[in-house]
């Protein structure tokens, strides 16, 4: 069973629709026990970082997400919340990836970075199994994670390269929205559930 964490972020319905299309067994939940019992955990997110972290604290999910040993996939804001810190609302995040979330400079590129962009796979990963290099995925982000030791795929926003996918132990994260990225996105979700 896949636990799809609902902590008041926007795109739970969209991820649920994608999982339903894949005919996966999933449960939308914010219950710590259910999350611990799941085989896989999807941690979606759309919205503002400090608000989201407050929600995680209120729902008592902050600690469990840090220590869980099952595979976790963070999507968009979900990925960013797995960093040490976010400049969005200047908030301490889960601290899984040792890096800070930065804002795109409106002087250098359009903000938000919105639309379909190439994802260059730098390290082979189960997550991208049978997905071609430079496949296009849908992004909608004003903040980004700079390249770091956990980066597995890179995307360029008008000369600013950033982490479009990251991995560390059982933690996976993508900056784009697989649930909104057509067939390639569905394939990535399937890979996470079946291979990771």
């Amino acid at each position: 069973m896949v636990a799809l964490i609902d902590y008041g972020s926007g795109n739970v319905a969209s991820v649920a629709n994608a999982l339903a299309e894949l005919k996966e067994d999933f449960r939308i939940t914010c219950n710590e026990v259910e999350i611990c019992k799941a085989d896989k955990i999807i941690f979606p997110g759309v919205g503002e970082a400090s608000f989201a972290i407050r929600q995680l604290h209120m729902l008592n999910l902050f600690s469990v997400l840090r220590i869980v040993k099952k595979p976790v996939l963070g999507i968009c804001l979900g990925l960013q919340l797995m960093a040490d810190h976010s400049t969005e609302g200047n908030v301490a995040c889960l601290g899984i990836f040792p890096v800070s979330v930065e804002k795109f400079d409106p002087g250098k590129s359009k903000v938000p970075h919105m639309g379909w962009n190439d994802v260059d796979i730098k390290y082979s990963s189960k997550l991208f199994s049978e997905i071609k290099n430079a496949e296009r995925f849908y992004f909608a982000n004003s903040y980004y994670i700079p390249l770091n030791g956990c980066t597995t795929a890179i995307t360029d926003n008008n000369g600013i390269p950033f982490s479009s996918a990251m991995e560390k132990e059982n933690f996976y994260g993508v900056q784009f929205h697989p649930e909104k990225s057509g067939d390639a996105g569905l394939k990535l979700l399937k890979n996470f559930i079946e291979l990771c």
């Binding site: 926007g10 759309v46 919205g47 503002e48 608000f51 909608a140 982000n141 004003s142």
Partner: peptide, 8 residues
């Protein structure tokens, strides 16, 4: 935009 993010 504060509640749902400016991208929405």
């Amino acid at each position: 935009s504060r509640q749902f993010g400016s991208q929405a």
